[in-house]
Design a protein around this nucleic acid. Structure first.
Lengths: 144, 144
DNA sequence: TTGTAAATGCAAATAATTTGCAATTAGGAG
DNA sequence: CTCCTAATTGCAAATTATTTGCATTTACAA
């Protein structure tokens, strides 16, 4: 289980200061561990911890966390979503198209891809596998 | 091989008119078949065919084509990219992080995912697998 | 040929994200 | 502990892709 302490440590190791704003953001992220969350929603949560934190600060910190490989960013609609990278296991997600609920799919077919990629003379650096559908709650509301 | 004629037919079948602007857009899309392209780049190309076509028209048509399932939209950086859906084969892509060149990876591990998804009580409706890296040309320019 | 809903072009609006800049602050050096 | 400096923040304004309102034009079925 990833801890707030670990996150703070990694931030410091990378030469960034531990401001109260940054700590609040980390706390919120860890509260949503393994689920995607938007910058705006992070703001709503952090404000409870550090009342007048600015959205700019959120964005700047998310960018830093992404740079030092602590955060995974994805953008499918018009709003970017973020999710802590927990290194324990490499995995992908299924995302509910209605409520955004996210579950982990603990399987990665990357090895099978890498040969195919080599054939195309690409160097593979990143990959993103996202599954979409309806979660248990939302599927009840679907029209028959 | 998908043809312009097929595309026009599908557009008509769905009750949309065949305006010259729309035809120009389809022509450009088919010219980039199996590769992603941005709205702005589509505009640059269509303008050669239909000189004062407006970017709004591009966006509105891309939305229609997406609605009738002729177009696949993806958004990773801040710009959406579009790619005709050719139904002949289901596949995924590798995208060069520098120049955007796209190649097809003709493999889909979806079946392996579906069992895992069922365990989570989701209904799986869509999936997106995107691989990123550097293409043959761009990898030459990478710093050593 | 005509009528009408669909489609277009333009300008203005929107919304997420970024940037400039002055003020504040974390945290290492002394 | 105090001071210094680079890092960080907050605010307001800029940016950029995309969308919307509206008047005008057009495809195409009758």
């Amino acid at each position: 289980m990833i801890s707030l302490k670990d996150l703070k440590k990694k931030v410091k190791e990378n030469g960034y200061k531990l401001t109260p704003q940054r700590k609040a953001i980390l706390k919120v992220l860890i509260g949503h561990n393994k689920h995607f969350i938007s910058a705006e929603d992070i703001l709503k949560e952090t404000i409870k911890i550090y009342p007048n934190l600015n959205i700019t600060t959120i964005y700047r910190n998310l960018e830093i966390l992404e740079d030092i490989n602590m955060l995974h960013k994805t953008k499918d609609n018009n709003t970017a979503l973020y999710c802590l990278i927990c290194e324990e296991s490499h995995h992908h997600h299924i995302i509910c198209k209605i409520c955004g609920k996210t579950e982990i799919i603990d399987f990665c077919p990357l090895k099978k891809f890498s040969d195919l990629v080599k054939e195309k003379n690409f160097i593979l650096t990143d990959h993103k596998i996202e599954l979409y559908g309806y979660c248990e709650d939302c599927k009840k509301d679907l029209n028959p």
